[in-house]
Amino acid sequence: MKRGHDFGESRVVCNAHWDSDVKMGRVMGKAAVDCLWTNSDFLTDWNGVEKEIQQIFDSNSE
């Protein structure tokens, strides 16, 4: 999160974007993620990824 925030701030400092562009990008990003957390297809995929990652961790600990 900090790296993303710093990247947005650097866009303003470098005069590549206005501060309002960066702020609204953060608002839109949060809205998109909030929407995903209510989407059943996304949640199914997310749960599958969690299981895959756990299997990788389990196989690497052997």
Score class of each variant (00 low, 15 high):
Gln54Glu: 11
Val49Trp: 02
His17Asp: 14
Asp19Gly: 13
Glu52Val: 08
Ser40Ile: 09
Gly25Arg: 03
Ser59Pro: 00
Asn47Ala: 15
Ser40Tyr: 04
Gly48Tyr: 01
Lys2Glu: 14
Glu50Ile: 14
Met1Glu: 13
Asn60Gly: 04
Phe57His: 08
Phe7Glu: 08
Val13Arg: 09
Gly4Glu: 04
Asn47Cys: 03
Asn60Ser: 06
Asp6Tyr: 08
Gln55Cys: 05
Gly8Thr: 00
Ile56Gly: 02
Ser10Thr: 02
Asn60Tyr: 07
Val13Asn: 07
Val13Tyr: 07
Trp18Glu: 15
Gly4Thr: 03
Trp18Ser: 15
Gly8Arg: 03
Leu36Trp: 06
Trp46Cys: 09
Lys23Leu: 14
Glu62Ser: 09
Lys23Cys: 06
Trp46Phe: 15
Ser10Trp: 01
Cys35Thr: 14
Met1His: 08
Asn39Val: 00
Gly25Ser: 12
Arg26Cys: 08
Cys35His: 10
Val12Ile: 12
Asn60Val: 03
Lys2Gln: 11
Arg26Ser: 09
Gly4Val: 01
Ser59Ala: 11
Glu52Thr: 13
Asn39Gly: 00
Glu9Trp: 00
Ser59Met: 06
Thr44Val: 11
Thr38Arg: 14
Asp19Ala: 15
Glu9Ile: 04
Trp18Thr: 11
Lys51Trp: 04
Val33Trp: 05
Phe7His: 07
Arg11Gln: 13
Glu50Phe: 09
Ile53Leu: 13
Trp37Asp: 13
Cys14Trp: 09
Asp58Lys: 09
Arg26Thr: 07
Glu62His: 06
His5Pro: 02
Arg11Ile: 02
Lys51Asp: 10
Lys23Asp: 11
Lys23Trp: 05
Asn39Thr: 00
Gln55Asn: 15
Gly8Gln: 02
Lys51Ala: 12
Ile56Pro: 00
Ala32Gln: 05
Asp45Ala: 14
Gly8Pro: 03
Gly4Pro: 02
Asp21Tyr: 06
Glu9Asn: 09
Ser59Asp: 05
Trp37Ala: 08
Cys14Met: 11
Cys35Lys: 14
Cys35Glu: 13
Arg26Phe: 10
Ala32Tyr: 15
Arg3Tyr: 14
Leu43Lys: 14
Gln55Thr: 10
Asn15Asp: 10
Trp37Ile: 11
Trp46Lys: 12
Ala31Ile: 03
Arg11Tyr: 06
Glu50Tyr: 06
Val22Trp: 01
Leu36Asn: 02
Lys2Trp: 02
Asp6Arg: 09
Phe57Trp: 09
Cys14Thr: 12
Gly48Phe: 01
Met1Cys: 05
Asp19Arg: 15
Ser20Glu: 14
Val22Asn: 01
Asn39Leu: 04
Lys2Cys: 06
Glu50Asn: 10
Ala16Trp: 05
Arg11Cys: 07
Ser61Pro: 00
Val13His: 05
Trp46Ile: 03
Asn15Met: 12
Asp6Leu: 14
Phe42Leu: 06
Arg26Ile: 11
Phe42Asn: 04
Asp58Val: 07
Arg11Glu: 10
Ile53Cys: 01
Asn60Cys: 04
Trp18Phe: 12
